[in-house]
Simulated scan of single mutants.
Amino acid sequence: MPTYIKDTTDFLNKFTAIQQPLPENAIMFCLDVTKLYPSVPRKEAREACKTALENRSDISIPTEDVLKMMDLVIEINNFSFNGKHFLQTEGTAFGSHLGMNYACTYLGQWEEYLFQNSNLQPYSYWRYVDDIWGIWKHGLDELKKIHELSTNIHPQIPTEMRYSTDKNLIS
């Protein structure tokens, strides 16, 4: 996904490549999806994964086979706590090898919806799993509208926002 950050080095490289000077009214912002892994809506995440799988170049394993394996991992995820066994019925597990890709793929579709439903786009925007960083140039009121839109995309996926207009932090 074009907005995805692989690691700290990738972030720093992208950050230093931001076109300077920044717009006069630049606002640095961070969005955090709270409790992403246990909150990922399964139906929507499965559809996002299916779309991503249908667009891959290597189709040596049929999409339906990958989805069946994914469903097994997601739907038959049991764990124990205080001597009792539980079956996780929403989201995905934190320790699952599939969890990060599953959550990231869903959030990729989530952010597409966010920007398709906004007339304004960020100056810069990147995401590492559920942590989003960007620069906004359309004023604080419009940034707050984007935050509100992001929180209302799905009731299970609320976001928290932090921002700064301090030019020393972003230039």
Rank of each mutant, 00 (worst) to 15 (best):
T3L: 05
E90R: 11
P41L: 04
D130R: 03
I170F: 05
S39N: 09
S60N: 10
K50D: 08
E148G: 05
L143H: 07
P38R: 02
T165I: 09
G134A: 02
V33A: 09
I132P: 01
I157W: 01
H147M: 06
I135F: 01
G108E: 14
L53H: 04
T34L: 13
L114P: 00
S124Q: 05
S96N: 14
I59N: 12
H85W: 05
H138V: 09
R56F: 11
E64S: 12
P41K: 11
D7P: 07
P122N: 03
P2S: 15
E54D: 13
A45C: 06
W110Y: 15
T63Q: 06
P2L: 00
T8A: 12
H147P: 04
K14W: 04
E148S: 06
R127T: 13
L107W: 00
S39W: 01
G91Q: 02
L114C: 04
Q109A: 08
M161Y: 05
Q116D: 15
I170A: 09
E112N: 14
M100P: 14
H138S: 06
T63V: 13
L36S: 05
T159R: 01
Y163H: 14
P158A: 10
L53S: 09
T89W: 01
F115W: 13
D65H: 13
E75Y: 14
V66Q: 07
N152G: 06
I59M: 04
I59F: 06
K43A: 13
I146P: 05
L31M: 13
K14N: 07
A103Y: 04
P2G: 10
R56N: 09
L72K: 07
Q88A: 01
W133A: 11
P2K: 11
K84C: 13
I74V: 03
F115N: 05
G139Q: 07
D65I: 14
H85I: 10
I61V: 08
G139D: 06
F94C: 06
N82E: 14
E75N: 12
D65T: 15
D130N: 06
L140G: 10
T34A: 15
T34C: 11
K68V: 04
L120F: 09
L114I: 00
P158W: 02
N82K: 15
Y163N: 03
Q121C: 03
A103G: 06
L36E: 03
I153W: 00
K6T: 06
L53R: 01
E24Y: 11
K35P: 03
F29R: 06
K6S: 10
I153H: 00
S39P: 02
F94K: 08
E111F: 04
S96I: 09
K35Y: 02
A93C: 00
T63W: 04
T34Y: 05
D166N: 15
S80Y: 07
E54Q: 13
D10L: 00
G95D: 12
A45I: 08
R162S: 15
Y106H: 00
D7Y: 07
N101T: 15
S57M: 10
S124T: 03
T63K: 07
K68M: 08
N78V: 14
T9G: 05
D130H: 14
